[in-house]
């Protein structure tokens, strides 16, 4: 029985496009999956951006930082049954969001100096439209992408594993970086990356977003005990994420 192929679109807002390239890196596995889907929009690969038909799934990478981004996002939302935010820029504003952590005076100066109008902040997709699923990370984990796609195509409901990086880190039997005095964001960050960074002996920098019940204050106290200055702690917590309210004391006086 030849089932109708799911129509899939890839779209890119403001970002480095690394997540889309990470998808391409699935190579032969992707070719296999291509047998079950029809790619209808992928500007990086295709000649002409044709009018977008009704889509089964839209993968959208990048943040919303201009009205052009926003118009495009709304259009994609209208056209798609299921919208997946692809990667940190789309799920949590990611590295684009560092700008949101700048003192407000500096943010205002940025906007004034911009050549084409930009929004007040860099936003994740969910600030403007309903997002049906998140594929977290900077960049995404391509295995997770594939697992999602397979689940979706077989009618299973994909769900987010809401566990912190520490959980996966323990399973990999890594020795704890935090216990060694290295400021690691593992305890407050979503897993799904198979604790990639700690397994490379590098601290987690929170690219998959903060867990729902994150104990920011407790982790900040540990960092403080390790002798990290306020500025450094601020920088760590705002690598990929906006500063949680509990840590407002880390903010500098406005410049």
């Amino acid at each position: 029985m030849a089932a109708e192929k799911a129509k899939v679109g890839f779209f890119s807002l403001t970002c480095c496009e690394g997540c889309e390239f990470a998808v391409l890196d699935l190579e032969e596995k992707l070719l296999k999956a291509f047998g079950q889907i029809e790619i209808v929009e992928d500007r990086a690969l295709m000649e002409k951006a044709k009018p977008v038909p009704r889509l089964g799934i839209a993968f959208v990478e990048g943040s919303v930082i201009s009205s052009h981004d926003l118009d495009k996002l709304k259009y994609i939302r209208e056209k798609s049954d299921f919208l997946v935010a692809l990667g940190a820029c789309a799920t949590i504003a990611g590295i684009n969001g560092i700008r949101n952590a700048l003192p407000s005076g500096q943010q205002e100066r940025l906007r004034q100096q911009a050549i084409m109008p930009v929004k007040e902040k860099a936003y994740p997709l969910s600030s403007f439209v309903k997002v049906d699923f998140l594929l977290q990370g900077c960049p995404i984990n391509e295995q997770e992408f594939l697992a999602f796609l397979n689940k979706f195509l077989h009618g299973a409901k994909p769900r987010l594993e809401e566990i912190p990086v520490c959980f996966e880190c323990k399973l990999r039997e890594n020795s704890c970086l935090l216990l060694k005095g290295i400021p690691c964001l593992g305890p407050i960050s979503y897993a799904g990356c198979n604790a990639l960074c700690p397994s490379e002996n590098a601290q987690c920098i929170g690219c998959r977003g903060s867990t729902k019940d994150a104990s920011f204050t407790a982790l900040d106290l540990i960092f403080e005990e390790y002798g990290l200055a306020k500025k450094q702690r601020f920088n760590l917590f705002t690598y990929f994420n906006s500063l949680p309210e509990q840590l407002n004391h880390l903010k500098e006086e406005p410049q």
Binding site: T14, C19, I98, Q106, M116, P139, N235
Partner: peptide, 28 residues
Amino acid sequence: EGQRFFESMLSGRDFSQVPLIVSRICGL
């Protein structure tokens, strides 16, 4: 494509973060 303000985002950041932030300028 929207301006991404990397130079400004870097100001105030620790030197150890710089390479990891700027590597995100480009996926390629």
